[in-house]
Measured scan of single mutants.
Amino acid sequence: MEVRTIKVFTTVDNINLHTQVVDMSMTYGQQFGPTYLDGADVTKIKPHNSHEGKTFYVLPNDDTLRVEAFEYYHTTDPSFLGRYMSALNHTKKWKYPQVNGLTSIKWADNNCYLATALLTLQQIELKFNPPALQDAYYRARAGEAANFCALILAYCNKTVGELGDVRETMSYLFQHANLDSCKRVLNVVCKTCGQQQTTLKGVEAVMYMGTLSYEQFKKGVQIPCTCGKQATKYLVQQESPFVMMSAPPAQYELKHGTFTCASEYTGNYQCGHYKHITSKETLYCIDGALLTKSSEYKGPITDVFYKENSYTTTIK
């Protein structure tokens, strides 16, 4: 009895394709271990004539594949690729409408935090270190965002349907971005203890939790000093293409032309909904596939993004 075979390709990165001759009487799992086709788990399936010449994702289970996976995804987590594939199996079914010149995501599976993050990423200057993220990001900007969303979920250790947080998501993504040249110098002034300067680099240099107003941050924000008295913390120097200011959701007025974009969060910790506000020729609110415009805006804002380049204080 002759062994019926077909020729397929296996890959971990969709760049390096490895030619395989597979036995049609055995499952993919018996031949390769966990195997995925377009995100779908085909591990328990036997090869079919229609699979001839198709590319299958496999887990990096030998040295060659491990090197290829690390170079593309910059992670050695053995569960990463499987999590990416199972997320992709959902995100490829989502709709990605162009809204006001940006790629958004039609609401499904509690994905409003991903839509808000995706919209924000198209408006701030950011370059990702893992080629996987950078490639998928370019495709997302062009309207094909399924891979990018699935990668975000995998890097953030999230599953489809789980509630997510924009600030946490951005923080994970910033860790995989090139923020080497970003720098922030802060000064804390206390009447009792004097003053202390701190220099922050990388992710810490672009994120701040405690106030939404970048102007206020430049002037000074009140913080408790270690001595128990009130101290003032203010920005001395900022070198970065953008800054992200966050605070627990509270009524906040966004003035046209003073910011790049913002995240609105309605609801409580267990259950809520994100919308995205962007400042173009007027203010726009993007909620999944829905767009509304207004000249002014007041609502429960939790993150505001500002364009920056270089700032030095005039406070002496």
Rank of each mutant, 00 (worst) to 15 (best):
V3N: 13
R4C: 14
R4K: 13
T5H: 11
I6G: 07
K7M: 15
K7Y: 08
K7C: 12
V8K: 05
V8P: 02
F9M: 14
T10Y: 10
V12M: 12
D13L: 08
N14Y: 04
I15T: 12
N16M: 15
L17F: 05
L17G: 02
H18I: 10
T19A: 14
T19E: 14
T19P: 12
Q20R: 12
Q20L: 09
Q20A: 10
V22L: 12
D23M: 11
D23L: 12
M24G: 10
M24W: 10
M24Y: 06
S25A: 13
M26I: 13
T27F: 14
G29L: 06
Q31S: 12
Q31F: 12
Q31P: 06
Q31I: 15
G33A: 04
P34G: 07
P34R: 13
Y36N: 02
D38G: 10
G39N: 09
D41E: 10
V42T: 07
V42D: 01
T43I: 07
K44P: 13
K44R: 12
I45R: 09
K46F: 10
P47E: 05
P47Q: 05
H48Q: 10
N49I: 13
S50E: 14
S50Y: 11
S50T: 11
S50P: 13
H51Y: 06
H51V: 05
Y57A: 08
Y57F: 12
L59M: 13
L59Q: 07
P60F: 15
N61A: 12
D63W: 07
D63I: 04
D63P: 05
T64Q: 11
L65I: 06
V67M: 15
V67F: 13
V67P: 06
A69H: 14
F70I: 04
F70S: 09
E71N: 13
Y72C: 09
H74A: 03
T75N: 11
T75S: 14
T76K: 08
T76F: 10
D77R: 07
F80S: 03
F80R: 04
F80T: 05
F80L: 07
L81G: 03
G82R: 12
G82P: 13
Y84H: 01
M85V: 06
A87C: 14
A87L: 07
L88S: 01
N89G: 13
H90R: 12
K93V: 07
K95T: 14
P97A: 13
Q98N: 14
V99W: 12
V99H: 14
S104E: 03
S104A: 10
S104L: 08
A108W: 03
D109E: 10
N111I: 04
Y113F: 10
L114K: 00
A115N: 10
A115S: 11
T116C: 15
A117G: 03
L118Y: 00
T120F: 05
T120D: 05
L121S: 03
Q123H: 03
I124C: 04
I124S: 04
I124H: 06
E125P: 12
E125L: 04
L126C: 12
P131H: 04
A132D: 02
A132Y: 02
D135G: 03
A136G: 06
Y138Q: 15
R139N: 12
A142D: 14
A142M: 13
A142T: 14
G143K: 05
E144M: 10
A145D: 01
A145Y: 03
A145I: 00
A146R: 02
N147W: 08
F148Y: 04
C149R: 03
A150C: 09
A150M: 07
I152F: 03
I152H: 03
L153F: 04
K158M: 04
T159V: 09
E162N: 02
L163K: 15
L163R: 15
G164Y: 03
V166M: 07
R167K: 03
R167G: 05
E168D: 02
E168I: 08
T169D: 07
S171C: 14
L173W: 02
N178D: 14
N178V: 06
L179P: 09
L179M: 11
D180M: 10
S181N: 15
C182P: 01
C182A: 09
K183Q: 13
K183M: 10
V185L: 05
L186N: 01
L186Y: 13
L186G: 08
V188S: 04
V188R: 03
V188W: 03
C190I: 03
C190P: 05
C190K: 03
C190G: 02
C193P: 02
G194K: 10
Q195T: 15
Q196W: 10
Q196F: 13
T198N: 08
T199G: 04
L200D: 08
K201M: 10
K201V: 12
G202V: 05
V203Y: 13
E204I: 02
A205M: 00
V206R: 00
M207R: 06
M207Y: 08
M207C: 09
Y208T: 05
G210A: 06
L212K: 06
F217W: 01
K218Q: 03
K219D: 07
G220K: 02
V221H: 13
Q222T: 10
I223C: 15
I223S: 11
C225H: 08
C225S: 02
C227V: 01
C227S: 02
C227M: 02
C227W: 05
K229G: 15
K229H: 10
K229D: 15
Q230L: 15
A231T: 02
K233A: 12
K233D: 03
K233V: 13
K233L: 15
V236C: 09
Q237F: 12
Q238L: 01
E239Q: 11
S240K: 01
S240R: 02
P241F: 00
F242M: 04
F242N: 01
F242D: 01
F242I: 01
M244E: 02
M244N: 05
M245P: 04
M245C: 07
M245S: 01
M245Q: 06
S246K: 02
A247W: 02
P248D: 15
P248L: 15
P249A: 03
P249Y: 01
Y252F: 09
L254M: 05
K255A: 06
H256G: 08
F259M: 08
F259G: 00
C261K: 00
S263N: 15
Y265F: 15
T266P: 00
T266Y: 05
T266R: 03
N268I: 15
Y269G: 15
Q270W: 09
C271D: 06
G272P: 06
H273I: 05
H273R: 06
Y274A: 05
Y274R: 00
Y274M: 07
H276N: 07
S279T: 07
E281D: 13
E281I: 09
E281Y: 08
T282G: 13
Y284E: 14
C285E: 15
I286F: 06
G288I: 04
A289L: 05
A289C: 11
L290R: 09
L290A: 13
L291S: 14
L291D: 08
L291R: 04
T292D: 10
S294E: 11
Y297K: 10
Y297A: 10
G299R: 06
T302W: 00
V304G: 02
F305T: 08
Y306D: 05
E308W: 01
N309R: 13
T312Y: 10
T312R: 15
T313G: 09
I315N: 15
